[in-house]
Design a protein around this nucleic acid. Structure first.
Ligand SMILES: [Mn+2]
Ligand SMILES: [Mn+2]
Ligand SMILES: [Zn+2]
Ligand SMILES: [Zn+2]
Lengths: 141, 141
DNA sequence: AGCCAAATGCAATAGTGTTGCATTACTGCC
DNA sequence: GGCAGTAATGCAACACTATTGCATTTGGCT
């Protein structure tokens, strides 16, 4: 199931309407290679003759983020589609400082250890947001 | 050694000038309880009768960030002083969703494991940025 | 005191994000 | 397929975040 298909299914199941702006934003994010800002999406639409209000784009993105269908990449600015459809737990990112390549991953053991370290400090962790920077396979050596 | 003292010492040692705007920003960040935006700092100054240009505040903050004297807290917006003076490695944050309380910590084992997981994916990690959300001691139970 | 590189101030510009309210358009139902 | 009701969008306005270029000032040095 493609990203857009999965996202549309998720929206339906949760009672959200499947509107034209939502479809368009999903399509834009599906096609994009890297993180897109809401502004980028607006420009892309404009380039195709269509028009989407900035506020609408923000609202759509917020919804998608809240459903974990897209994630904000803090170290880069912008939003990317989730590549780990329906995999539970915390989704993390590897960000290559050479080529900008982004990889999403998940690791339960890491979550456990992270929560355990927090516990020692008296903190009850619920969610971990991590972005590691470094070099991807292609950019090493 | 207080935050400001340590920061001023660091700036000197690295050949940066110790200017009035830099002192003022350091003082503002030292006093602040939570993360401050550059705009917040500007308003605070204005409130005290002084005036600092926004651009200057941004430049000072960028410098302090590059020296790891302050950190940006992505999940909240805004910048906080580093509480782990001169402790090597990746500094992480625990962010309470109840009261907003912020705690900075460090854990080498966590870094090792995180880098190891990345390695398995062919990625050579150099730095980890983590913000965990959950409940602090006071906000539990 | 005087030099000068570094840093600041100012002006302009662009991107990010939010709110309120009138209008539109999905969805479910007949 | 039309209709009703609610959810979502469009628009207008606004506030905050961030960057650039250039003229001017100033901290650190001799
Ligand atoms: Mn994900
Ligand atoms: Mn720190
Ligand atoms: Zn790379
Ligand atoms: Zn708390």
């Amino acid at each position: 199931m493609s990203f857009t298909e999965y996202a549309e299914k998720s929206l339906r199941e949760k009672g959200y309407k499947l509107t034209k702006p939502r479809r368009q934003v999903l399509e834009a994010i599906e096609k994009a290679e890297g993180p897109m800002s809401p502004y980028d999406i607006g420009k892309m639409m404009e380039g195709k003759g269509r028009h989407l209000d900035q506020v609408t784009i923000y609202r759509v993105i917020n919804l998608l983020c809240s459903l974990n269908l897209v994630h904000k990449v803090f170290s880069r600015g912008g939003y990317v589609r989730c590549d780990l459809q329906e995999e539970e737990g915390c989704h993390r990112f590897l960000v290559c400082r050479g080529c900008g390549h982004l990889q999403e991953y998940r690791d339960e053991a890491l979550c456990r250890q992270e929560s355990q370290v927090a516990q020692k400090l008296g903190f009850q962790a619920e969610h971990h947001v991590t972005e590691s920077s470094g070099l991807c396979k292609d950019c090493q050596g």
